[in-house]
């Protein structure tokens, strides 16, 4: 009995301590302040995904260092609802961060709503178009860089079988697949391309390396020797798996994954990466806001303006560089129209 009372007493006291909070009727976002620096809302995976989000982070790091700005970062999670995304942007803008960068198309509606609430703050959205006077919509022609990745894959494959792994089966990742497939077919019409996705709608596809590893293993077992993975953080899993089988190649995405220190162990089998220069777009935006002339409106990034590109680090493509340059030239000149839907 005495032991029970003791347990109860300890419990009640700690509960009382924990619950002494009182509601004060204020909002969690009205802390105020001005020009605190850059607010960054990442997509799932966040900083450290060695891919999409890291590209945005690099652009921000460069700008904040150069202009002596402060920054604040927030990251999405898989169970996010609309209110989570709005809250994240609201919090950043409300605390005085300007510009506020939303990484990923899922923020589209949230940016539309919150940009209206803070007309003096500049917002940016990656991979989506939001028409508002204070929003920079950054759209990337990733089908073009993926096309070059497809050309490289076809030229480097010894088995004539190449593979594509997408994180989530949606429109955006479809542009990567469409470009890649077309690049392969235009180069070696007889080659076989296998396209697979990790998830149909669930955005866990961007942060599930184990799933990507499984898919890559399956492809390798079927004799596929070049695999292009467009799946954010999940790509780590497929790169690791590919590195376990000599003579096969991984193609990275969004960032130059050959140069990523975290992937250094596998770099000898990272053929190239289809780079999406989110960093350039983010840097440009921060600079423009810093200069007092915010770069708003829809800004397209493609092969011709260097917004997307194919990495050459590692030098594995040196022998086929001439063919790649020719293909790039054709895309830039419009001689080849790359499809954006598979």
């Amino acid at each position: 009995m005495r032991r029970v009372s003791k347990i109860a007493a300890a419990g009640v006291v700690s509960a009382a301590l924990a619950l002494t909070a009182t509601a004060c009727g204020s909002s969690s976002t009205d802390s105020g302040g001005k020009d605190k620096g850059v607010g960054m809302a990442y997509d799932v995976g966040g900083r450290g995904d060695h891919s999409f989000n890291d590209s945005a982070a690099r652009g921000m790091d460069k700008a904040t260092k150069e202009f002596g700005l402060k920054s604040k970062e927030q990251t999405a999670s898989n169970s996010d609802t609309e209110s989570d995304r709005e809250e994240r942007l609201d919090q950043l803008a409300g605390a005085g961060y300007n510009p506020v960068v939303a990484v990923g198309y899922t923020y589209g509606d949230a940016v539309t709503k919150i940009a209206k609430k803070y007309p003096k703050t500049t917002f940016a959205i990656v991979d989506s178009v939001v028409s508002a006077p204070n929003v920079d919509s950054m759209v990337f022609s990733t089908e073009q860089s993926s096309y070059l990745a497809g050309v490289a894959a076809a030229l480097k494959s010894k088995t004539g079988k190449v593979g594509f792994i997408g994180g989530v089966h949606n429109t955006l990742i479809g542009t990567f697949q469409a470009g890649f497939d077309q690049g392969v077919k235009d180069t070696k019409p007889g080659d076989q391309v296998t396209d697979q996705y990790l998830y149909e709608t669930d955005d866990r596809g961007y942060n599930d390396p184990a799933a990507a590893a499984g898919k890559a293993k399956g492809m390798l077992d079927k004799g596929i020797d070049v695999i292009y993975t467009a799946a954010g953080l999940s790509g780590d899993g497929s790169i690791q798996t590919i590195a376990g089988k000599p003579g096969t190649w991984a193609i990275g995405v969004d960032s130059d994954q050959h140069e990523d220190p975290a992937l250094a162990k596998y770099k000898n089998q990272i053929l190239t990466s289809a780079i999406k220069n989110v960093d350039v777009a983010v840097y440009d935006l921060i600079k423009s806001v810093h200069d007092g002339k915010p770069k708003v409106g829809t800004n397209s990034y493609n092969l011709s303006n260097g917004g997307v590109s194919l990495a050459t680090s590692g030098g594995f493509l040196a022998d086929v560089q001439a063919q790649l340059d020719a293909a790039k030239q054709k895309v830039v000149s419009g001689q080849i129209k790359v499809k954006s839907t598979p």
Partner: peptide, 14 residues
């Protein structure tokens, strides 16, 4: 009460 449609941003994992 919120989204009024089912899109590819519908919450998962609940």
């Amino acid at each position: 009460n919120q989204s009024y449609d089912y899109g590819n941003d519908f919450p998962t994992g609940i």
